[in-house]
Nucleic acid binder design. Structure first.
Lengths: 197, 197
DNA sequence: GTCAAAGCGGACCCAGGGTCCGGATTCTAT
DNA sequence: ATAGAATCCGGACCCTGGGTCCGCTTTGAC
């Protein structure tokens, strides 16, 4: 019925572009110097096609990001513990943060490009909002923890793409160590009763 | 003496540029759309002059930032408690973070422009390194606190310019409330003995 | 007063994101 | 099968904005 399926070539080109962009971002040192023209060329496609399919640079990044994020999202929304919804809050919070960290470690360049590339802040991005709402909701169910809204922001800030990139790239912190550090930090934040001032 | 003092007009122009840029960044919604040509025009100066004085856009931002930061830096390095060096660590950490937060609240646009504007990560910036080294050193003197390096990064991440901007601008969180939230969060991180896992 | 060095400023260059339109491709109706 | 309309393709083109250049002016030392 009026399901306007896109044309075969359009779909094929879309995939080609995604693959090419993926490869380019992975290969290049800084996401800054992957140019749109380059992506188009690598995909064997004209710039017009590229921009029609994704709107603008940010759109392309978002599409790539969402595609990569899909499995994680699924695991969080309907998967088994410790990520899934059946997990008790105190275990789920560190699991969520660990998942975010691992995702950013596995997609360093891409996350970097998306988070700091766009002119407007990453905090308006739809995927950030999703993570934040989720984390906030879980934190809320932990008794004696005030300000779950701010706490969620602050915890997520510890997994910012450029921080991860700096630690992994510049300071050569190995993956497992970083995960342990984040886990320890998270544990501290969640520890004991109401913080005394 | 071979002290090559800069020419009178050069110095005057430098000041004019700083003042003009300051005003522009404060007035404009997003730092992105303050153009260098605009700054030059507002200062009544040619682009050539602007670029010779500051090197490039990042240089101008840095100069502005350092100028604004100077008093805070002084207070931290040689001032009275609770910011100065004579303060016991457990009090000084929250004081330092509060100072950073207040600074960013008072210079939202500027901090935003500097932190996310430049192509390279903010973590290479000299001023970030200074804050991090300082915070790290103070944290190290708190017993039972592992990973002061990562902890310093994570705590500073909670004061990132774009997060502050988002909370203050988008979510309309009042200044005092944000300070309280950060203080509470910090207290949690520093609370009680070694975190148990 | 003279002269070299430093400074000035706006015309100019260039990269890169985004647009456009003539021609090719695909889908649908007959 | 085929005509015709809708859609898509792609590279030439535009435009903004950071950064450079060079002939002219100002400064300050002798």
């Amino acid at each position: 019925m009026p399901e306007p399926r896109s044309r075969k070539d359009a779909a094929r080109n879309r995939e080609a572009v995604l693959a090419a962009a993926d490869a380019l971002f992975a290969r290049r040192e800084s996401p800054e110097d992957v140019t749109m023209a380059e992506v188009a060329a690598a995909a064997g496609v004209g710039k017009g096609t590229l921009f029609r399919a994704f709107g603008d640079r940010a759109g392309l990044l978002r599409a790539l990001y969402e595609a990569r994020l899909e499995p994680v999202r699924e695991a969080v929304e309907a998967g088994p513990p410790p990520l899934g919804p059946a997990t008790p809050p105190r275990e789920r919070v560190p699991a969520l943060l660990d998942a975010v960290l691992c995702f950013k470690l596995d997609n360093r360049r891409l996350a970097l490009a998306l988070e700091e590339g766009g002119g407007d802040s990453p905090y308006r991005a739809e995927h950030y909002e999703r993570w934040h709402r989720m984390l906030r909701a879980v934190l809320e169910r932990i008794p004696g923890l005030a300000d779950s809204d701010f706490t969620a922001h602050a915890l997520l800030a510890a997994t910012r793409a450029d921080l991860v990139e700096h630690l992994a790239g510049e300071e050569r912190v190995p993956r497992e160590r970083m995960r342990a550090q984040l886990a320890e930090f998270t544990a501290r934040v969640l520890a004991c009763g109401p913080a005394e001032r």
